[in-house]
Lab assay of single mutants.
Amino acid sequence: MSIQHFRVALIPFFAAFCLPVFAHPETLVKVKDAEDQLGARVGYIELDLNSGKILESFRPEERFPMMSTFKVLLCGAVLSRVDAGQEQLGRRIHYSQNDLVKYSPVTEKHLTDGMTVRELCSAAITMSDNTAANLLLTTIGGPKELTAFLHNMGDHVTRLDRWEPELNEAIPNDERDTTMPAAMATTLRKLLTGELLTLASRQQLIDWMEADKVAGPLLRSALPAGWFIADKSGAGERGSRGIIAALGPDGKPSRIVVIYTTGSQATMDERNRQIAEIGASLIKHW
């Protein structure tokens, strides 16, 4: 068994979910400061990975656009189908120029040979490839089937209604394609530690997140040497930005962190900087 497989195998399969305990108010002060700096709502939650206990939260039950963070949930649904014998990671999917949508850096290079389901999930999570996400959504039956998958695992909040790139529209008070920080954190924890997926599929999902190549300016920029992070970022219209992550010291994950913001006029660089500063405070007061 590899070190990575050993790491995931040791994560307990508890489903406990406790009331908020504000253990590190310094980080919450930074979250509130980020709201002021961005002129926007910021949602934040931090869960203990083992117990599910809420360590910190701010606007945990307010809706925020999911943006590309939904791609982790999508690949979780795909892996669930693989575990059930309904899908194969090695199955090759062919597509055409007409299937390509905005921001598809991986799929646009494989119009001739197509891509396997495994490769599409990797592209969707590590590079946030939008066409890969749409092709994967098609394999499970579309956005409503992803919502149904989430409902079946106990998440009655998170919903996907549209395809890429329309799902990033982020209209105020529009519940389409949204989640809440508390719901997303709990669902991510179930996918990474629960019995919904096999150990091999849980390991595959966290491996894809660990290999994320487009979230460098966010939490990763604040991470000390030797820390572990597996994450997925998202960006949308109307100043929307977000990240979901499993992270921790000593090379293994010990907490789930979810950060969303929407409604800002700030630049992407400024949104990234504020999320990175929240991450720096989190690590400082770990």
Rank of each mutant, 00 (worst) to 15 (best):
Q88Y: 15
K213D: 02
Y103S: 05
L247P: 00
R162S: 09
Q86S: 13
P249R: 11
T112N: 13
S264R: 04
L55G: 07
G234A: 10
N173H: 14
R255A: 03
V157I: 07
L160G: 03
M67S: 12
E175I: 11
K144T: 12
A225S: 15
S254I: 11
I259Y: 03
R92D: 05
T187M: 09
W286S: 00
L282V: 15
P181L: 02
P65N: 04
L167S: 05
L89C: 05
D83S: 05
S96V: 13
L38G: 08
T178R: 01
L188F: 06
A123V: 08
A235G: 09
Q97K: 15
I54Y: 08
S57D: 10
K284R: 13
Q86A: 13
S201V: 03
I283L: 02
V82K: 05
E56W: 04
S221T: 14
A123T: 03
L49R: 02
A23G: 15
S240L: 01
G226D: 11
S57N: 04
M209L: 07
P172T: 12
S80D: 11
P12A: 12
G234C: 05
V101F: 10
F149C: 08
A170P: 09
F228R: 08
S96P: 08
L137V: 08
M127G: 06
N134V: 02
A15D: 01
R59P: 07
L89Q: 05
A215H: 04
A133D: 00
L219E: 02
G39A: 15
E175D: 14
A230E: 00
N168Q: 02
T158Y: 00
L223Y: 02
D250F: 14
F22T: 06
Q88S: 15
R202A: 12
V29A: 15
L218C: 05
H94D: 09
P253T: 10
G154E: 10
I125M: 08
T262R: 11
E87L: 13
A200W: 06
L89Y: 06
R271G: 10
Q88T: 13
P181R: 03
W163G: 10
L197C: 03
L10V: 08
K252I: 11
E87C: 06
N152T: 11
S240C: 10
L219D: 03
T261A: 12
M67G: 15
S57W: 11
S96W: 09
G43A: 08
T187I: 07
P65C: 03
W163A: 11
Q265H: 15
P253E: 08
D231R: 02
L135E: 05
G226A: 09
R92H: 13
V82A: 09
E145S: 14
S2R: 10
L218K: 01
W227R: 00
A222C: 11
M180V: 14
K284L: 09
T187A: 10
L55W: 08
M180P: 01
P172Q: 12
P60S: 11
Q97S: 15
L218V: 04
S57G: 12
T158L: 00
L136Q: 00
I283P: 01
R202E: 08
M115I: 09
V214R: 06
Q265E: 11
I93Y: 06
L218Q: 02
L89V: 06
T267A: 11
V21D: 05
M153I: 15
L79T: 01
S96A: 13
C121G: 04
T179L: 00
A245T: 06
I45V: 13
P165K: 04
I3R: 08
H5P: 06
I54S: 09
S201R: 06
I229S: 02
A84V: 14
D174S: 07
V257A: 06
P105H: 04
I125V: 13
I140L: 15
M127I: 09
P25L: 04
Q86G: 12
L167V: 12
G85E: 12
A235D: 02
A40V: 06
A215E: 04
L136T: 03
T186P: 09
E62A: 11
F22G: 11
A225F: 10
G226W: 05
A148V: 08
T198S: 15
L205V: 06
T147D: 09
P217Q: 09
T262G: 06
R220G: 03
L188T: 12
D177R: 00
E26V: 09
M153K: 08
H285R: 12
W208C: 03
E119D: 13
H285G: 12
G85W: 05
I140S: 03
H94Q: 13
T261S: 11
A235E: 02
A245S: 12
R159A: 05
A235V: 05
M115V: 06
R271L: 12
P60L: 09
R255G: 01
T139M: 10
L38R: 05
S264D: 08
L136V: 08
H151L: 09
I93M: 02
I206M: 14
P25S: 12
P181T: 04
R202M: 06
P172L: 13
M153D: 11
G242R: 00
G216D: 08
D207N: 07
G52W: 04
T262D: 08
L196Q: 15
T198G: 12
D231A: 05
V42G: 01
G154A: 04
E87D: 08
D177E: 01
K232T: 00
F149R: 06
G90A: 13
S201A: 11
K30G: 04
V8R: 11
A230S: 05
R59H: 12
I243T: 03
G234R: 00
